[in-house]
């Protein structure tokens, strides 16, 4: 048989992100007909703002999940980091300094999980499970459980809209997506993410330094989570230790909806982006149609199952 070098990727219309885009557009069209307010500039801008935080967190989760890791304490980390920022701002620390400190807290939180998982050869999933309580507890102890309001400070990030339609929040989250995309697709570090997630032993035997690289992945996650905390604080203007709770599940859900398997080694940022967008649009649609918030949780749960079903089907086709 002759050797062929012809490139023949999976045709784009079979890929998860494309299917999701079709779903999003169809859903938007249907909602727009039922309630024309859906297409109002205000509502669309609103959607973009709402998914900015989730976008950053999901970008970090993409890196971790492809590498075969999980951080389910990101919700608590956001709470802790945002509380730290808010408390410093309340004490009149300069905003950039306060944000830097909060970012540092988030990075430490994430590195702590990576380090423990390496040190004790335990899955990061379990370590981060333990950290959910630790980080929330620290936040509670620091704030005494009270809400931290920053009264009009640090508004620039959350309220700026270029030309009245393009929120700065969304631009920041877009930068997050692009950075992760660049890392995954164009750098050696990205290859290591895939290699370690695909077969850790083989990666080690191919000369990849496992420990150093895993710590780098957790560092990237920490930066993105810290940035997400800053966005959240600026948009809402007040935070409390429970802020961010549930974010980890929605972020991981978005990554899975985007087509990355839980087993690692596969996935891309385009999938995550469409996953996040789909969640944002559905949430907005449910609000527009005045569905009870209880059903929203049910819907997100079902959405994850449906998207797993889609990946399972598309794998079966290939057999």
């Amino acid at each position: 048989m002759k050797t062929m070098t012809r490139r023949k990727g999976r045709t784009f219309y079979k890929q998860q992100w494309f299917i999701l885009m079709v779903v999003i557009v169809a859903m938007a069209a249907a909602t727009g007909i039922a309630n024309p307010k859906f297409f109002s500039v205000r509502n669309l801008v609103n959607i973009l703002e709402q998914i900015s935080t989730l976008g950053l967190v999901a970008s970090g989760a993409t890196v971790l999940m492809i590498s075969g890791n999980f951080d389910i304490s990101v919700g608590s980390t956001i709470g802790l980091s945002a509380c730290a920022m808010a408390m410093l701002m309340k004490r009149d620390v300069a905003e950039p300094l306060a944000v830097a400190a909060g970012l540092g807290v988030a990075i430490l939180c994430c590195l702590f999980i990576g380090a423990n998982s390496l040190l004790f050869k335990a899955p990061s999933f379990i370590i981060s499970l333990a950290c959910v309580g630790i980080y929330r507890g620290i936040a509670l102890a620091l704030t005494g459980g009270t809400i931290q309001t920053i009264y009009g400070k640090f508004e620039y990030l959350g309220s700026t809209r270029y030309c009245g339609v393009l929120p700065l929040l969304f631009i920041v989250s877009l930068v997050g997506y692009l950075a992760v995309h660049f890392i995954l697709a164009r750098t050696r570090l990205g290859r290591r993410v895939y290699a370690i997630g695909s077969n850790r032993n083989a990666a080690f035997l191919s000369g990849i330094a496992i420990n150093r690289n895993l710590m780098t992945f957790f560092l990237i996650n920490g930066i993105l989570v810290g940035a997400a905390a800053a966005l959240l604080l600026s948009r809402v203007g007040a935070v409390q230790p429970a802020t961010g709770a549930g974010m980890e599940l929605r972020a991981m859900g978005a990554v899975v909806i985007g087509g990355a398997p839980m087993t690692g080694g596969k996935g891309n940022i385009l999938g995550t982006f469409t996953g996040v967008l789909l969640m944002g649009v559905i949430s907005n649609v449910l609000n527009m149609l005045q569905v009870s918030p209880y059903f929203q949780d049910i819907t997100f749960g079902l959405l994850i199952i449906v998207s797993l079903a889609i990946s399972a089907m598309s794998q079966k086709w290939q057999k």
Binding site: A195, N199, N201, A202, G207, I208
Partner: peptide
């Protein structure tokens, strides 16, 4: 078990 990244492309497996 110890050499290939089964769910990654051939090219990445060669160049890693």
């Amino acid at each position: 078990r110890l050499a290939l990244f089964m769910n990654r492309p051939l090219s990445e497996n060669v160049t890693v």
